[in-house]
C-alpha cells in the first residue's frame, strides 16, 4: 500500500502502526471516503507483515467505524461524516504518545515533557 510507512523495529506493535498509518492517510486526504483498501493478502504481502497484524488492524479500524467491510466486495474507507475530526484527535494522541516514548528513551520523565511543552506554548503566546 503506497504511502503507508511502517517501521517493524519500532517498539510499537505493527498492527498499531498500520492503524495509525491508515488514519493519517485519511486525515491527510490521501485516502478518501469510499476508497478501496488492500485485501489482507495484499496488505500482508505488500507491506511484508504478519497477516494477523493486518487482520488485527482492520478489525480495530472497523470497530472504530473508520473502515467498512463489504462482504464479497472488499474493505473501504467509511463514508461517515465527522470521521475526519475523530481522526484528527486520534492522530494528535498518537503523535503525543510517540513523543512521550521518544522522550522517555532519552531519559526525560513525562512531567519534564509536560513542563517543556507548557513552557513552549507560553513562549509562543508571548512571541505572537
Amino acid at each position: 500500500m503506497e504511502g503507508l510507512k511502517l517501521n517493524a523495529s519500532l517498539g510499537v506493535p505493527i498492527y498499531r502502526q498500520v492503524m495509525d498509518g491508515i488514519r493519517e492517510m485519511i486525515a491527510a486526504g490521501v485516502l478518501k471516503p469510499g476508497d478501496r483498501l488492500p485485501s489482507i493478502r495484499e496488505l500482508a504481502g505488500g507491506m511484508r507483515i504478519n497477516p494477523s497484524s493486518a487482520v488485527k488492524a482492520y478489525n480495530e479500524l472497523k470497530h472504530a467505524g473508520v473502515i467498512v467491510l463489504d462482504q464479497g466486495r472488499g474493505t473501504f474507507v467509511a463514508e461517515r461524516p465527522g470521521l475526519v475530526a475523530e481522526n484528527r484527535e486520534a492522530l494528535l494522541r498518537a503523535d503525543l504518545e510517540a513523543l512521550l516514548v521518544r522522550a522517555r528513551a532519552r531519559g526525560f520523565s513525562e512531567q519534564q515533557v509536560a513542563r517543556a511543552l507548557k513552557a513552549m506554548v507560553a513562549e509562543r503566546k508571548d512571541g505572537s
Partner: peptide, 25 residues
Amino acid sequence: LAYAACHQPTILLSSHVLSDLERLC
C-alpha cells in the same frame, strides 16, 4: 506472507536475524 494470509499455514522458523522475525512472526 501472501500465502500465509490466504491459507493460514502454521509456520515454525529459526533465525538469528531479529529484524526478519520482527516482521514475519
